[in-house]
């Protein structure tokens, strides 16, 4: 089966139906493995056991950003190739990305309370994640107000692209505005600053969350395709009646 066959929604549904159980099983396994490693991960010498929150917080932050990446790619598919499957992919990614961004915000806040003594500080990273969440809410509001799914998808695609251009600028300006947070420590030149005993579980959890994202995304795409079928059938019925 060629990749091009996936472009047909019916074939896509068949593939999703076949792939989804395996993806679910892989997600569950990855989480079981990752959580076991998290349980035996050592405490941080400064942060104590609260470092366990990091295993949720950091993957959620990555996926919050990746969700917008998925929406951006889907937006190109919508605007350039006018592909209905790209519409569906973009629409399905928005609530999932927003949910992971929300997880990132809440866990960050719960991590901040014992570490910084307050639930919320207006530091650069928290604030830019908050702005990302607001952008997601804007996209969701747009889908919510659009009556016609095609029109809504095209509008959301433009907003996704505008956001993709703007997110780096927002991140830069928010960092310029306030640099209180610790500097990036996972990816930097000269190797990782995190001890392998903590980094390994973190990477496994990140992998597990990524699998979860794609499982949910594929399932939500399937729902959206079915929803559009229902809509077109109802329109057909109404036009015949």
């Amino acid at each position: 089966m060629a990749v091009i066959d996936l472009a047909n929604p019916t074939r896509f549904l068949a593939v999703v139906n076949r792939v989804l159980p395996w993806l679910m099983a892989a997600t569950i396994l990855a989480f079981a493995f990752g959580l076991a490693r998290v349980m035996y991960a050592p405490d941080d010498y400064q942060q104590g056991a609260t470092v366990k929150i990091m295993f949720l917080h950091v993957p959620a932050a990555w996926l919050g950003m990746m969700g917008w990446g998925v929406m951006t790619v889907a937006a190109l598919g919508t605007l350039v190739w006018r592909h209905p499957l790209a519409d569906v992919a973009g629409k399905a990614a928005a609530p999932i990305g927003a949910a992971f961004t929300f997880i990132c915000l809440v866990t960050g806040s719960l991590w901040g309370r014992p570490m910084w003594g307050t639930y919320w500080v207006w530091d650069a990273r928290l604030t830019s994640v908050l702005v990302l969440f607001l952008l997601y809410l804007g996209v969701l509001a747009l889908y919510w107000t659009a009556e016609d799914p095609g029109r809504g998808s095209r509008a959301a695609a433009i907003l996704a692209l505008v956001g993709a251009v703007n997110i780096p600028i927002i991140k830069f300006s928010v960092e310029w505005w306030n640099t209180l947070h610790q500097p990036a420590s996972i990816i930097r030149s000269g190797g990782s600053a995190i001890d392998p005993s903590i980094l390994m579980p973190l990477l496994i959890m990140a992998g597990a969350f990524t699998l979860l994202f794609f499982t949910l995304h594929l399932a939500a795409m399937r729902n959206e395709i079915l929803r559009r079928r229902v809509r077109s059938m109802r329109l057909m019925q109404a036009s015949r009646a």
Binding site: V131, L134, L135, L137, G138, A141, L142, T145, L159, V162, G163, N166, I169, I170, F172, S173, V174, W176, W177
Partner: peptide, 15 residues
Amino acid sequence: LLAVLVLPLTIPVLI
């Protein structure tokens, strides 16, 4: 809707 969509994008200008 306009304000909801646009205000987050204007944060750099405000800053």
